[in-house]
């Protein structure tokens, strides 16, 4: 998934649903470790749409 820092409100909703547990909420940003399995959970729960599918992905 693509993460857009400027769309992120640092709420942690994405962290709660990441099955790979690669997202971490720090003081003022979400960091993403390698290992994303492109499940799309983060795109569903993010209130501001900070996560998007990679270009070319068909939903």
């Amino acid at each position: 998934m693509e993460y857009q820092r400027y769309n992120c409100g640092n709420c942690g909703a994405c962290v709660a649903v990441c099955p790979q547990q690669i997202l971490k909420l720090n003081e003022n940003q979400v960091t993403k470790d390698p290992g994303c399995d492109e499940c799309g959970n983060c795109t569903i729960v993010c209130p501001l749409g900070a996560f998007t599918w990679k270009v070319g992905h068909e939903v």
Partner: peptide, 10 residues
């Protein structure tokens, strides 16, 4: 980790 359907996105 929770299922996305169990998280209220607010």
């Amino acid at each position: 980790p929770n299922k996305p359907g169990n998280i209220g996105s607010c």
